[in-house]
């Protein structure tokens, strides 16, 4: 063992890279399958490799060692593992590659639901490993961009709904026109240095008090 990412995780075995082509930290989650070729291949590509087995402390471990990418090589992912990966994706998403032999459509659907970057059935070809990792990382980055854009669009839509509700309250209670309601809302927001959406929530909350 020449280096460790985390001295607090004694069950983790660290392996030395044979070349220094890659600088990415790869966490290999072991199963009962023989990973010797996979490990050698990763090391040959210069990845910094840590390996461990999947345990209930999986999420805490990821938080602690912060790998750049996680690779699984297993027969089939358990429900608990897929749930953990979904949680990981919500909390601190990472590129995840899963080599599996289970081609059941339910398993594939659940893996996609868990936002696994690459789910590869019976396709562990060591020559293509570097390409698979690069594609998975590129796909992960693209997914993150889409995810952020979606969250942003949802937040804007929610803000718009709140603004419409707040305007309706002002129109009803103050006999404002829609334009007056909007300008009142905007002035209140500017005076408080908050967004229109936040101000709309204030107006709604205040009206709730008098309901």
């Amino acid at each position: 063992m020449q280096y460790r990412w985390c001295t607090n995780a004694p069950f983790i075995k660290t392996l030395a890279p044979r070349t220094l082509m890659n600088r990415l930290n790869v966490l290999l989650i072991e199963s009962d399958l023989d990973n010797m070729l996979l490990e050698n291949s990763l090391e040959d590509q210069g990845y910094k490799l840590l390996k461990t087995r999947y345990t209930p402390a999986f999420l805490a471990l990821i938080k602690e060692i912060t790998p750049d990418i996680i690779i699984f090589n297993l027969d089939t992912p358990s429900k608990k593992l897929l749930t953990d990966l979904q949680t990981l994706n919500n909390q601190a998403a990472l590129p995840v590659i899963m080599f599996a032999s289970d081609d059941n459509i339910d398993t594939i659907n659940q893996a996609i639901k868990a936002d696994i970057s690459a789910f590869i059935v019976d396709g562990l070809e060591y020559k293509r490993l570097n390409t698979i990792i690069n594609v998975a990382i590129a796909r992960f980055k693209h997914q993150q961009v889409l995810k952020i854009a979606l969250e942003d669009a949802c937040a804007k839509l929610e803000d718009r709904k709140q603004m419409d509700r707040a305007k309706a309250i002002l129109i009803k209670t103050q006999n404002f026109t829609e334009d007056e309601a909007y300008h009142t809302l905007r002035k209140l927001a500017m005076d408080r240095n908050i967004t229109l959406g936040e101000m709309a929530k204030n107006v709604i909350a205040m009206s709730e008090l008098f309901k």
Binding site: I194, K201, N202, A205, M206, L209
Partner: peptide, 19 residues
Amino acid sequence: ITGNHEPDYNPELDSLSSM
């Protein structure tokens, strides 16, 4: 008494969360 009876009300709501 009206408004938010829960402790985790939104502090941005001009701090007026209950009446």
